[in-house]
Amino acid sequence: MLCLGIEGTAHTCGIGIVNSRGKILANASRTYIPEHGGIHPREAARFHAANARLVLNEALKAAKIDIDDVDLVAFSRGPGLGPCLRTAATAARALASWLDVPIVSVNHCIAHVEIGRLTEGAKDPVTLYVSGGNTQVIAFDAGRYRVFGETLDIPVGNCLDVFAREVGIPHPGGPNVERLAREGKHYIPLPYVVKGMDLSFSGLMTEAVRKHRAGSNLRDLCFSLQETAFAALIEVTERAVAHTEKREVMLTGGVAANKRLREMLKLMAREHHAKFFVPPMELCADNGAMIGWTGVLAYRHGVRQKLKDTGVMQRWRTDQVDIPWRNR
């Protein structure tokens, strides 16, 4: 069985092709980069619509298959930006009905976890999923992926990106902040916010921008921003590890590219005698392969959907989805 997965929750238009044994035959994508400012949802959706065909052809070529060989279409139903989700869903519905194959919708956050489990061999990890659009600590318990901590306001990737933009660091914000942070030496105290299991980054971002305007050294600020935000992330992940007593820790999402974050999480995992996993970056970032693979899992375990029940869910929670492919 070949599954074509379509990802379109935010700025990535991705199409992956995966077979039922979990072999990734193709993972093509194009990423929308705004000319200035953050993602404009409508512009991003327009980008997806304009590039979907190109990405599809690339994926089919890479997988060396014909479009008629596709047996199943999966797409990212949410959470994400409405216009982008609707564009991806429209493409998925059109393909599924034209090919006359079944369609399944996939939760984007869960797909991030599943692709890591597939390629890295993690069995039952506590996952720290950090990107420009999401920040969650996820672990499986009693039939569902439970959220053991999440941001109460902005995601950590957004915190880094907006800070970069506000202080004039060029695109891509996160990686450039990381580069500058390596040259920072002095820690400038910034608000460290952990509220129970949850996190908050908006105050941290505002204060860092304010300190920059007040004349603090930019390299030191980048360093301090990372150290503060990441320490909070690791603390919450550590609490989930201590609570669930799981022995695996996984890092995924776009911010997983950050070497300092990897290093910190690895140290924490070691203190708890837990194995540490990070999928390759092309699978940490938003991609179609993870949607395709999660679609395979769902379909193989009896998930069936009618076209009319595939409306998008912008705020679809990770813990709302039953996971029939995992044992309780």
Binding site: E227, F230, I234
Partner: peptide
């Protein structure tokens, strides 16, 4: 003490 975090943050917390 947590080795993963910056010593100043660690001590302060």
């Amino acid at each position: 003490s947590k080795r993963y975090r910056n010593p100043q943050i660690d001590k302060q917390l």
